[in-house]
Design a protein around this nucleic acid. Structure first.
Length: 201
DNA sequence: CCACGGATTGGCT
DNA sequence: GCCAATCCGTGGA
């Protein structure tokens, strides 16, 4: 099944930017109805509720964003555009609202189930394969992540991330975030060069 | 109370 | 490239 250790609470307590970059190449795992769904993280963005106007937490704690204000190592799931869920890894300590948005994952295990979740059918074309998880809302759909998963402890046994060797600097692109209107010049987006499951160039 | 827009996606021009 | 879909949080009257 898997190799590598489950990332522990210490990992998630660190600096959000370092964690964002470190998460590239690691394996995101969800146990879904007894099935193992997993994939390699290939694209992320960092959000800092204290200094970053684009962060959901910038204006303070609300019912929606309260998970971001808790300890690092939880999953922050939010609902947007009336139909989509997106998932973040919460980092840092209590009342230090920082998180890493998962924007692209390369499927590894449970691909048939992911297709079922995403398209309502088990088989898929080559084009649909890329389309399974190359976006923040797409990957949530494929992994079956919705409102009940908000606040899930990533050091538990339902959703967790497996360690993997550190990537080479030359494999990583660092650039500005996408889909936002504020703090648009911060270079807080990280992705793996040439990976087809990155949402956009 | 109402209007507006969103860390997106997919379909159509 | 443009825009509708569709819920919900936020802000102003």
């Amino acid at each position: 099944m898997h190799t590598g250790y489950i990332l522990d609470s210490k990992f998630y307590k660190g600096d959000v930017h370092k964690i964002a970059e470190c998460l590239l190449g690691k394996i995101f795992v969800r146990i879904f109805n007894r099935n193992v769904l997993s994939g390699k993280i290939v694209e992320v963005e960092a959000y800092d509720g204290l200094t970053d106007e684009a962060s959901h937490a910038f204006k303070g704690k609300t019912k929606r964003n309260e998970v971001m204000f808790r300890q690092g190592g939880l999953l922050y799931v939010y609902f947007t555009y009336g139909m989509h869920y997106c998932a973040n890894v919460v980092t840092g300590n209590t009342n230090d609202p920082k998180a890493v948005l998962l924007r692209g994952i390369e499927p590894v295990e449970g691909i048939g189930q992911m297709s079922l979740n995403r398209f309502g059918k088990k088989s898929f074309t080559q084009k649909e394969f890329i389309n399974l998880t190359n976006g923040p809302a797409k990957l949530c759909k494929a992994f079956g992540i919705e409102r009940p998963e908000n606040g899930t402890d990533l050091t538990g046994d339902k959703i967790f991330i497996l360690d993997s060797p550190k990537l080479n600097k030359s494999e990583i692109i660092i650039t500005t975030r996408i889909g936002i209107n504020k703090s648009i010049n911060l270079p807080w987006r990280y992705y793996i060069k040439n990976n087809p499951f990155v949402s956009k160039k």
